[in-house]
Amino acid sequence: MELDGKVAIVTGGGGGIGAALAKALVARNVRVVITDLVADGLDRVEAAIDTSAPGSVATITGDAASSEHIDATIALAEAEFGPVDLYFANAGISGAPGLDVTDDEWAQVIDVNLMGHIRAARRLVPEWVDRGAGYFVSTASAAGLLTQLGSATYSVTKHAAVGFAEWLNVTYGDRGVRASCLCPMGVDTKLLRPDAAPADDRAMLMQRAVETAGRVLTTEEVADVVMDALGDERFLILPHPEVLEMYRHKGADYDRWLRGMRRYQQGLVDSANP
């Protein structure tokens, strides 16, 4: 897709990958509405962008998984800039690890990491089909192609996000609607490296698994890879190219891959408890 002059929405844009995506889009003459649950981050991102591209960004605070908030965000974009061309379903949470996660905790992670994508697509895709153009970009994770040691909620919902993006691409790809899925490994964000230390050994395992699997990228590096992929309309966006080889190994011999993941997990546990 040619980005110049387009209108985009970025969820989870108050920091991390979302903020970097918003800045990269504006640098390519895209007008952007950024949404996040917390206003402080949005204000900082908007102020930073306004110094170089005043008037190119609008912000709105709210829950990216809420249908009402999605409607309000789209209405703001249309009022400020015009019809929405691209939607970046980027907001995400990790959730608590382990089988002791409650139903309410599962529901929250599913709501943000999956249902927010579905609700946004439900709202926008029919309009894009009528117009013959539109682009949905899902931020999943390498955990959605492989798995996530230490967190069932994150792994399961990111697999689901990949599956939904695939379904969008297959179902609407010949009707003008594009869909891509971003699947990085470690990125230097609060999700990977929160201000507080991980709460328990399982959360620490999750963090160490990601940090030792490959280089931890900056958010700007990830955003640059996404911009290149949009130009190619490439479905699978892999800031860590080695993920593709890992994915091939998984598909080539699933049981061998599972044994290797168990060994990797045990190695991380052993190194943490010498």
Score class of each variant (00 low, 15 high):
Arg259Trp: 13
Ala197Ser: 11
Pro184Trp: 06
Gln207Glu: 03
Leu236Ser: 02
Arg248Asp: 08
Thr212Leu: 13
Pro194Met: 09
Leu230Asn: 06
Leu182Met: 04
Met261Pro: 02
Arg215His: 09
Arg256Asn: 14
Pro241Gly: 08
Asp188Ile: 06
His159Asp: 02
Glu221Asn: 05
Phe235Trp: 05
Gln148His: 14
Val156Glu: 05
Val225Tyr: 07
Leu244Tyr: 11
Val225Phe: 07
Leu258Gln: 11
Met185Ser: 10
Tyr247Cys: 15
Val216Glu: 15
Val222Leu: 04
Val177Ala: 01
Asp195Cys: 04
Trp257Ser: 05
Arg234Leu: 00
Gly214Lys: 10
Gly186Trp: 00
Lys250Cys: 10
Pro184Ser: 13
Tyr172Val: 12
Asp174Ala: 15
Glu166Asp: 15
Glu221Leu: 10
Lys158Trp: 08
Met204Leu: 13
Leu258Cys: 13
Val177Tyr: 00
Ala197Gln: 12
Ala223Cys: 07
Arg215Gln: 15
Asn169Pro: 11
Met227Phe: 06
Val187Leu: 05
Pro241Asn: 02
Asp228Glu: 00
Met185Asp: 08
His249Val: 15
Ala199Lys: 09
Leu238Val: 04
Gly214Ser: 14
Pro184Asp: 07
Ala199Arg: 11
Arg202Glu: 14
Lys190Asn: 15
Phe235Thr: 03
Tyr172Pro: 10
Trp257Tyr: 12
Thr147Met: 15
Met204Trp: 06
Ala209Met: 05
Pro239Gln: 00
Gly186Tyr: 00
Val156Pro: 05
Asp174His: 12
Thr189Gln: 01
Glu221Ser: 09
Asp228Leu: 01
Ala252Thr: 14
Ala161Thr: 02
Phe235His: 02
Met185Ile: 06
Thr153Phe: 09
Trp257Val: 04
Arg248Ala: 03
Arg193Asn: 11
Arg175Leu: 09
Val226Thr: 00
Val156Ser: 08
Leu149Asp: 11
Asp201Phe: 12
Lys190Met: 14
Ala203Cys: 03
Glu221Pro: 08
Gly186Met: 00
Arg208Trp: 15
Val177Arg: 00
Tyr172Ala: 14
Met206Gly: 02
Glu221Thr: 11
Val170Ile: 05
Leu182Cys: 06
Asp188Met: 02
Leu217Lys: 14
Val177Asn: 01
Val187Met: 04
Met227His: 07
Phe164Arg: 12
Leu230Glu: 00
Met261Ser: 05
Asp200Leu: 02
Asn169Ala: 13
Gln207Met: 09
Arg202Asn: 13
Ala213Cys: 08
Arg256Tyr: 12
Tyr247Val: 13
Thr218Ala: 05
Ala152Ser: 15
Lys190Trp: 15
Cys181Arg: 07
Pro184Gln: 05
Gly214Tyr: 05
Met204Ala: 10
Gln207Arg: 10
Arg193Gln: 08
Gln207Trp: 02
Pro198Gln: 03
Asp174Cys: 12
Ala196Gly: 10
Arg175Cys: 02
Gly150Arg: 11
Ala165Gly: 02
Met227Asn: 01
Leu236Glu: 02
Cys181His: 07
Ala152Asn: 14
Val222Gly: 05
Val222Cys: 03
Pro194His: 06
Asp228Ala: 01
Asp200Ile: 01
Asp232Pro: 07
Glu166Gly: 11
Asp255Glu: 13
Ala152Phe: 14
His159Gln: 05
Pro239Val: 01
Asp253Ser: 14
Leu236Asn: 04
Arg208Thr: 12
Ala165Glu: 01
Ala160Ser: 01
Asp195His: 10
Asp232Tyr: 12
Arg178Cys: 08
Gly260His: 01
Met206Cys: 06
Arg259Val: 12
Met227Asp: 00
Pro194Lys: 02
Pro198Val: 01
Gly260Asp: 03
Arg175His: 09
